[in-house]
Amino acid sequence: MVNAAIVVLAGTESHSDTGRLVNGLEAAREFAENEDDELELIFDGAGTQWIEELEDEDHDYHDLYRSVKDEAAVCDYCASAFDADAAVEDAGIVQIDENDGHPSIRSLVSDDYEIITF
């Protein structure tokens, strides 16, 4: 069994950001498909902006996103800071605020999660 936390930090501005997002989603799907693994998929920082785009059924990576959406959470503070609150709420994704409005990376490490950032 593996505990993995995939953290998507890449914004939406560039082709390289899209590449980082896709690599993160592909890694998340690989863990999600293994029933013995535990996965946390966290959209943090500028990564919170992806929710609105990925919720669009016409987006190239919508299906990949849907395959791991149930595992997804969003940084509460960053969703607000990057004006993604409404999209996150509409998508029904959990907002995490364990550490001054942010996810607690320390808690994940304490629970033996490998932290992988994209």
Rank of each mutant, 00 (worst) to 15 (best):
A81C: 11
D85R: 00
D90K: 09
D97T: 14
P103W: 01
S80M: 09
E89M: 05
E71I: 02
H102Y: 08
A72K: 05
A72T: 06
S80V: 13
A91W: 04
Q95Y: 05
A86N: 14
D83N: 11
A79K: 00
V88Q: 00
A72H: 03
A81N: 05
Q95H: 08
F82D: 01
A86T: 15
A79D: 00
P103T: 05
D100P: 00
K69V: 11
N99G: 12
D83E: 14
E71T: 08
P103F: 06
D85T: 03
E98H: 08
I93K: 04
A86K: 12
I96H: 03
D70P: 11
A84V: 10
D70I: 03
C75F: 08
H102Q: 11
D100N: 14
A73N: 12
E89D: 10
A87Q: 07
D70K: 15
D83W: 04
A91F: 05
G92A: 11
N99F: 14
A72L: 09
F82M: 09
S80Q: 11
D70F: 06
G92W: 13
A87K: 02
A86H: 09
H102R: 10
D90C: 05
G101R: 01
A73H: 10
P103M: 02
A87D: 07
D97E: 15
N99I: 09
A81G: 08
D76S: 15
C75V: 12
A84H: 01
N99Q: 15
E98R: 02
A86Y: 08
D76I: 10
A87F: 04
D85I: 02
V74E: 03
Y77N: 05
N99Y: 14
A84G: 07
D70R: 14
A84I: 10
N99H: 15
A81K: 02
H102S: 09
S80C: 12
Q95G: 04
A91Q: 07
K69I: 12
D70A: 12
P103E: 03
V88D: 00
Y77A: 03
E98I: 02
D100S: 11
D83S: 14
G92D: 11
K69Y: 10
A91R: 04
A87E: 06
Y77T: 05
F82W: 10
C75Q: 06
S80R: 08
A73I: 06
Q95A: 02
G92C: 10
A72G: 07
A72I: 03
E71G: 05
A81L: 09
G101W: 03
G92Y: 12
Y77G: 01
D85V: 02
V88N: 01
A81M: 10
F82A: 08
G92K: 13
Y77I: 08
H102W: 03
A84W: 01
D97C: 13
D76L: 13
A79Y: 00
D97G: 15
V94P: 15
D83H: 07
S104N: 09
A79M: 02
D70W: 09
A79V: 07
